[in-house]
Design a protein around this nucleic acid. Sequence first.
RNA 1: GCCCCCAUCGUCCAGCGGCCCAGGACGCCGCUCUUUCAAGGCGGUAACGGGGAUUCGAAUUCCCCUGGGGGCACCA
Length: 482
Amino acid sequence: METIAADTGRVRVRFSPAPSGSLHVGSARTALFNYLFARRHGGTFILRIEDTDQSRSRDEWARAIEDALGWLGLNYDEGPVFQSQRTEEYRRAADDLLTRGLAYECFCTEADIKARSATSTQPDQTPGYDGFCRDLTPEHRGQAKAAGKTASLRFRTPDTGVSRFTDAIRGEVRVEWSSIPDFVIVRADGNPLFYLANAVDDLAMEITHVIRGEDLIDSTHRVLVLRAAIASTPPPVYAHLPLILGPDRAKLSKRHGAVALEEFRSAGYLPEAVANYLALLGWSPKDGREIMDLDEVVAEFGLDSVTHAAAAFDHDKLDWVNGEWIRRLTLGELEARIRPLADARFGERLDPEIFRAALAVGQERAVTLVELLAQMDFLFAGDEFSISDEAWAKVTGTDQVEAVLTVVVAHLADCEWTIEGVDLRSPLSEAGFKVRKVMPAIYACIEGRPSGLPLFDSLVLLGREVAIERVAAVQERLAGTV
RNA sequence: GCCCCCAUCGUCCAGCGGCCCAGGACGCCGCUCUUUCAAGGCGGUAACGGGGAUUCGAAUUCCCCUGGGGGCACCA
């Protein structure tokens, strides 16, 4: 039977995560590439939740994954399809395979298998299954069941020959069947396993291209042989993406910092930037552009230009991309994006007017939204304003600070309260101070940190009264110290 | 242990037999701009893992080694 997909040549891809945790950047990249491919070819992008393992799956994780995809801007056209609701489909396929002798009941427990391999004459052999129940007679099976044993279902893999498939980005991949043991397709409790559900669903959903991580490359042979046993429909094209490693080229983990998409979000990264960076990890446009939005990437995306080697996640480069994106937003867009984070950080103390103005001066220097907010702490800290040790060192490390601050207070007390009026350069140099030398100390008094928003803009936003108070507080502290 | 995939600057990529004593980006280092720190501008540092083979000619093709990653679950 020809499928609609085959008839029209329509591309249908799916992102199929297991809801056993929030969306990991590696999975996000896989989702992204599926999305890009679908959009590039006017195809359909489907979300399928692979939750056949009851013990590891949780609804809240499925929701978290959907949220993360939405945040990234990867909207799907179909789904989510939950495999846990399609158990009957898998069971029917499994029964058929059993009936046809392509699969068999296995009564071995994990402990049985482990025990046998431990006493094997050839220790350290392949950790897989040894085929113990492969040719059990009906009598044996009857005895096992009578003894109360439950059976899992194993697929009988070929003993000889080679399994091969052509990977869209790696070319032909081949492996000897002898290295692939009979594998379980239905658990003893009746629930299907990944291989089965995967084969059945890709068939049922008429998936044309399977784009996933390279960690699944070896499982392809199993899914393919299973699929062929279930139906004669031509298999989809497989494309295995290079994995994303940590900066040290080891498996990317929490140890390397943020790994869940949600963490990047709360750390102040823009979805455009994360998607942009992820697209560049393993792919690049012909002209070498770096900063691109999703549509621009879609316009040029192709599996043939995907890299083969695993890539190390580079936080520095992500930071740069994020900064570029922050600068690309209009002030209004930036404000809309950062507002939730700002409310969480400053609450009632946030003054919308001042906030917007501060945003304007901070936009051109920010790396992340959170970092941008941190630069505004001095504006909305209220009574909790304090000077960091690092900043205080700038104060005490400046020659004649007291005299400098006296000049500062004098000027701030009766200058015009505008960017120009608040300019301390003239009064300072007229008093004989080197502006560049003395600036850090003044900066520290006002903003409490060694770096951040430009001083004169900051003074204007802070207001004359508070500004003078802060300098005065430092003068008192210095007097008390001396 | 066995199997699979991969291999260009510190990192991400370009390169698909001559245009390459290898190009771009991040980082890093200078310089510049400058009211702190950034951002910006300019410049610099830095790589084809090793050995064979094919060829008039290899970063580019083939083989071996080495190295890195992944897999070998009643996880996906």
